[in-house]
Structure formats: structure tokens, C-alpha cells
Amino acid sequence: MPSRGALAPLMSHIGVRTASELVVHGKDNRGEPVESAEVGRVLPVPEALAELLPWRGLRRGGTVAVRGATSLLLALLGPATSAGSWAGVVGMPGIGVLAATEFGVVPQRLALVPNPGAEFAPVVAALLEGMDLVAVRAAAGIRPEHARRLSARARHHKSVLLSFGAWPGAEVELHGSTARWSGVEAGSGYLRTRRLVVEAVGRGAAARPVRRTLLLPDSAGGIAAAEGATEANPARPRELAG
């Protein structure tokens, strides 16, 4: 019989959780804040996104997919890097670093590997070992067995794998849609805020879809919940003639 010490990494590898995690897990569905003992296991996210995620944050060892809005991904990276974590971004040569800093991402702790090419999986694996958060975008979809292996690697190293785009076996998927911008009008002003509907769908605990309307970015350049679920003024398509 293997000793307890030998068993623990094995269990974490196959995704077995400890009892305490399950307790916290149960609480989350009622929307209560995370126990303080669990804080080290969950990386902080903006308040507005916490409501959408089980554990109210990014659980170490988990895999989260983000679709529809790059800024949603950037907003997820902000609080953790401000708190001292490192974040890696693989395969996203067009990532807006300036926008990332506006969401609180610290550029000194943002490692970019824009073009991993054929070495995608080894690069992601290497970064998962050294950083708390690794955001990836697989160029032409990823084979399920590779995805599983990388998710297992994240679990093993207690880092969070964030995929921009669908990821087979992701625990939670955040999907941004129905964006509405405000701030510009007929040549004056500038893009200021965007209302974005974000839907979270997941497996297990997060199976029940949650939908929220967020301001991303809000008037302060951050992220906030939109007051009232009512939509802003409907689109006003420009008159065709005159």
C-alpha cells in the first residue's frame, strides 16, 4: 500500500479532490465567499467575474476556456499578476499588451511566446511548470489527447490553464457575446464602455449555465457588473440616404 505522501500527487493527477475542497465547492453554489483556508488555492479574479466562476476565482490546477472576447481573458489575468503571480501567453501574437495593462496586468510578469509553431505543447508544458497562469491559443484546434495531457500538467503543477477558444475538457467555459459599445457618436467622443453578455457553462459543479451582463471595459477601464439587466438603447443604424 503506498504511503499517504506518495498518494497525494497521484490523486491530484487524476483529479481527485480533498474533502475540504468539496465542502467549499458546495458553498459556492450558494454564492458565499471562499473560506480563507482556500484562498491560496484560488487565484483572484475581478469581482464581476467571480460570480460566474465556481470557487469565485481561478482554481489552481483547473482549465478554463474563454471565447468571444479577448478582453475577457485579459481581465482574468489582471488581479493575479498584480498579486505577484506570473502569467504566460502562448500563441497570441496580437494580444493587446496595452489593454492588458489597463486591466491591471503587470507587464514585468507577463511572459509572451507569440509564435510557438510546432512546439506548442512543449512550450505550454514548460510554462505551466513555472507560472501560475498560462493563457494559450492553439492555432488550428488542438487534438483532445494533447489537450488532456496539458490539462493534467496544469493540475499537477497547480497552475491554471486558460484557453482562448474551445478546449476539450475545460471545467468552465466563459463565452462573451452581444457586445454593445457606447462613447462614440457621429465622429465625436471615443470608445468608452461596452456592455457584454457573458455566459459561463461548465461541467460538474458549474453545469448550470450562469449569464451576466458586464461592463467590459467600464468607464474606469476595468470590469464591472452592469446595473439592471435591461439592454441599453438598441442599435441605431445610420440612415442610408441623407
Binding site: 504566460g88 499588451v97 507587464p107 507577463l110 511572459a111 509564435n115 510557438p116 512550450v123 501560475d132
Partner: peptide, 26 residues
């Protein structure tokens, strides 16, 4: 954390070359 991250980046540079990985400056 910085040391751990640095090692990971050095490993990536070993795979892809020196210019392939880094941190941005604003």
C-alpha cells in the same frame, strides 16, 4: 516565483530560440 518563471522562459528559449520569448515593455 520570478526565478521559477525565469527557468521556464529559458527552457522555452531553448526550444524556440532566444527571440521567441520575453516580457513586454510599455
Amino acid at each position: 516565483a520570478a526565478e521559477r518563471a525565469g527557468r521556464a522562459l529559458v527552457r522555452v528559449q531553448g526550444l524556440l530560440g532566444e527571440q521567441s520569448a520575453g516580457t513586454p515593455v510599455v
